[in-house]
C-alpha cells in the first residue's frame, strides 16, 4: 500500500514558541494521518530538545555557556511577535488551554506517542557546545544535512 509510505520531514530551525507549536502541529497531524514524520532540529530549534527546560549553563566554554543560559530551554521559547519579555508565551498557553487546543507540552507528548522521529543537528550542537546528554532521551539520532536529505528523498520537506 503506497499510502503507508507518505513521508513528511520538518526542519525546525526556529526556537520561537509559535513556530515550534506549528512544527509540532504539522508533525502530529501528519503522523496521526499515517505519515512517517521526522523533525530535524537545528540552531534555535535545539532549545526545544534540551533536557533542562529552563535556563541552564550548558556548554563547553564560557561563550557557549552564556549563550545557552540566555536562550534557555523549552520553557523560555519566545513568541515571534509581541513577546513582552516572555510573558506572552505563558498567556498564549493559557489562551490555548481556554480554547481546548493542545498546548506545546501536549503536542510534544503526542508526537512521542505517535512515533515522530526527533533528530538533532550535529553541526549546530557543536557550535552551541551542546552534548547528546544535554538533550532529551526521545532524540533518536544526531545527524547532519546529508542524513537529513537522504531520509527526506521522497518526503515533503517543510522548513520552519
Amino acid at each position: 500500500m503506497s499510502e503507508e509510505h507518505k513521508k513528511v520531514s520538518i526542519v525546525c530551525f526556529s526556537g520561537d514558541f509559535d513556530k515550534v507549536v506549528a512544527a509540532f502541529t504539522i508533525a502530529t497531524g501528519a503522523a496521526a494521518t499515517n505519515r512517517e514524520v521526522t523533525i530535524f532540529f537545528t540552531f534555535w530549534g535545539l532549545n526545544v530538545l534540551k533536557k533542562k527546560q529552563g535556563r541552564a549553563w550548558i556548554g563547553k566554554n564560557l561563550l557557549s555557556r552564556i549563550f545557552n543560559f540566555l536562550m534557555g530551554g523549552r520553557n523560555n521559547l519566545p513568541l515571534s511577535r509581541l513577546n513582552f519579555m516572555g510573558a506572552s508565551p505563558k498567556l498564549m498557553t493559557g489562551m490555548m488551554k481556554g480554547c481546548n487546543v493542545a498546548t506545546l507540552p501536549e503536542l510534544i507528548e503526542a508526537a512521542s506517542a505517535l512515533g515522530v522521529r526527533l533528530v538533532a543537528c550535529e553541526m549546530a550542537m557543536h557550535v552551541l557546545g551542546i552534548d547528546r546528554d544535554d538533550l532529551v532521551d526521545e532524540v533518536e539520532d544526531v545527524a547532519g544535512v546529508a542524513t537529513f536529505l537522504n531520509e527526506s528523498e521522497d518526503a515533503h520537506i517543510i522548513f520552519i
Binding site: N100, A102, L107, A110
Partner: peptide
C-alpha cells in the same frame, strides 16, 4: 467533539 486539530486525529490514531 471537544478536541481541535490536530488532537482529533491524534486521539483516534492512539485509540
Amino acid at each position: 467533539t471537544g478536541e481541535h486539530c490536530p488532537m482529533t486525529f491524534v486521539k483516534v490514531k492512539l485509540a
